[in-house]
């Protein structure tokens, strides 16, 4: 009888121990697998809301800048109508503005569409199927080298001070909101030269390798008339002064 009671006691202790272990494992599972992602989701949502608020402010500011530039041009045109000297200055500034990307342009050119391939990771864990800011930068540089006179990237005009940045698949140009693939690059200029440069197998080596290996899309279309929008963000040299 005493041995039966002892074995029942041992069994109960074992069950209690197993239950305790299961309890700890469960608690760990809940903490690691449920609570953390929930917090991550909440954190991400808060970050996304912040980005959206900032993007709305960015959009409103850029609209205000475009409206102010239009009003200033109109006031200058009025003044130029009353003075030959002002007219001469206004013509000079109009030419400078056009070359700086501050006015819309149209003409023959090429359109380059870039899109990422199907999601996959290479052996180093990199997401090489994505289109990055460096891909966009490479295409823009190639087009300028091949005779582009004006370029826009997904509706954002490139200026002499434009800069590209980004993180992951996010592409940031100047003070605009982040862009994501598919990206459309429109270039006005020497259409034949730009098309030849884009077809050169030695050009855009990184994109070409990833086109073959990761199905990254590069589509080039020539056109007799393409339009570029005016630049609508900040363009100032606050520190550089003419000598």
């Amino acid at each position: 009888m005493r041995s039966v009671a002892r074995s029942q006691l041992v069994s109960s202790a074992l069950v209690a121990l197993v239950a305790l272990v299961v309890g700890f494992l469960l608690a760990g599972q809940v903490k690691a697998q449920l609570l953390t992602p929930s917090n991550q989701v909440a954190r991400n949502q808060a970050l996304i809301r912040s980005v959206q608020d900032l993007e709305r402010a960015n959009e409103a500011d850029r609209q205000r800048i475009a409206a102010l530039r239009a009003q200033i041009a109109s006031l200058e045109a009025d003044a130029a109508g009353r003075s030959n000297a002002t007219q001469t200055l206004q013509n000079q500034v109009a030419d400078l503005r056009a070359h700086a990307g501050l006015t819309a342009l149209h003409g023959p050119g090429v359109q380059v569409d870039l899109a990422g391939g199907p999601p996959s990771r290479d052996s180093t864990g990199q997401q090489r199927y994505l289109i990055t800011y460096q891909d966009v930068q490479d295409v823009v540089n190639l087009l300028f080298a091949a005779g582009a006179e004006g370029i826009s990237v997904s509706g954002r005009r490139i200026t002499p001070l434009s800069a590209f940045s980004g993180s992951g698949n996010e592409i940031v140009i100047d003070q605009g909101p982040p862009l994501f693939a598919p990206i459309r690059i429109v270039a006005v200029g020497d259409r034949n030269r730009m098309q030849a440069a884009l077809q050169d197998p030695s050009a855009l080596p990184s994109l070409r390798v990833r086109q073959a290996q990761y199905d990254v899309m590069i589509k080039v279309t020539g056109s007799p008339d393409l339009s570029l929008p005016a630049y609508d963000a900040s363009l100032e040299a606050a520190h550089a002064r003419a000598i």
């Binding site: 991550q40 954190r43 991400n44 970050l47 996304i48 912040s50 980005v51 900032l54 993007e55 402010a57 960015n58 500011d61 850029r62 205000r64 800048i65 102010l68 530039r69 200033i72 940045s165 980004g166 993180s167 992951g168 698949n169 996010e170 940031v172 100047d174 003070q175 605009g176 909101p177 982040p178 963000a233 900040s234 363009l235 100032e236 606050a238």
Partner: peptide, 30 residues
């Protein structure tokens, strides 16, 4: 679905700087 926290944090930082520059430009144009 959207982006990872590092990318979102980068966006926030970049947009703050961008919006500051835009405000300066608005003041100058005004």
């Amino acid at each position: 679905q959207g982006a990872d926290p590092a990318t979102l944090a980068f966006s926030i930082d970049q947009l703050h700087q961008a919006n500051d520059s835009l405000e300066v430009q608005i003041a100058d144009l005004s």
